[in-house]
Design a protein around this nucleic acid. Structure first.
Lengths: 129, 129
DNA sequence: ATTTTAATTGATAATGTATATCAATAAGAG
DNA sequence: CTCTTATTGATATACATTATCAATTAAAAT
């Protein structure tokens, strides 16, 4: 026996698909509206399990909670420092080792990267024309 | 009156200069050996203050505790996923916006990035020739 | 269909990292 | 030397996440 198909698991997977780069808390709050018995621990567990099995993506970030993503192919994000929203980018870091002249014997496996700035909406609100 | 020159502050600044990309805990443990009265809160406070005033660098990371750096000019790091050590790189991300074709109205202010892999020492230990 | 089993759940405690609080202390201006 | 207030130490609190464990339940075995 291996992985079971629980409703909680389906609910978590569905929520990640519907929401836009949600964190665990946001996934929980969405599900709990319709299924008030679900536990936050179950949400965390399933987010991790689905990410390990590559059914969803996990975005670990330097600040604030981890985010989850219905896209599973590696890609990079812009984070608005005002509203916190994530935006997908077209950045191509497929060969991160090419970004360095000297790796000093270090074997590079991947690049964790996140662009920080301010999104169009927040810019507009800060300085409306 | 503004910023005061406390011994605790000097101890924290010195520890960051002596240690190699330490986290707050490591700074605390170094100082507490000679100054057993220092509080961990003081270490955190001074690390943040020194970083704000650009006397040390702060490296916020997606995993584990923040690290501090005697180098203050922006630069990027390699993190060994085995031993956790950080290594300085020669990566140049001075104009992160040039890495994207389309920014969709987003204003990019900086790029948070960290190369992940395995360092020469840990590679050697895993597969000694 | 019923039993068996182990994966999963819910509730909650515990962890790790960091900040907030606040009375006591002390750096440095006058 | 006195006074002001930045700073400290001790501790509580915050926050995100994982660990624990008895109870439940999906699905395999009978």
């Amino acid at each position: 026996m291996n992985r079971r198909n629980t409703i909680q698991r389906r609910l978590v997977a569905d929520a990640v698909r519907v929401l836009d780069h949600p964190d665990a808390e946001t996934v929980y709050e969405k599900i709990v509206q319709e299924h008030p018995h679900i536990s936050k621990a179950t949400v965390y567990r399933n987010l991790n399990l689905l990410a390990e099995q590559n059914e969803i993506g996990k975005i670990s970030t330097a600040e604030g909670a981890d985010r989850y993503d219905c896209r599973t192919r590696p890609h990079y994000h812009l984070r608005c420092r005002v509203c916190g929203k994530l935006f997908d980018t077209d950045a191509n870091f497929d060969r991160p080792e090419t970004l360095l002249k000297d790796t000093n014997g270090f074997t590079i496996e991947k690049l964790n990267a996140e662009f920080i700035g301010i999104c169009a909406d927040c810019k507009e609100k800060e300085a409306p024309h």
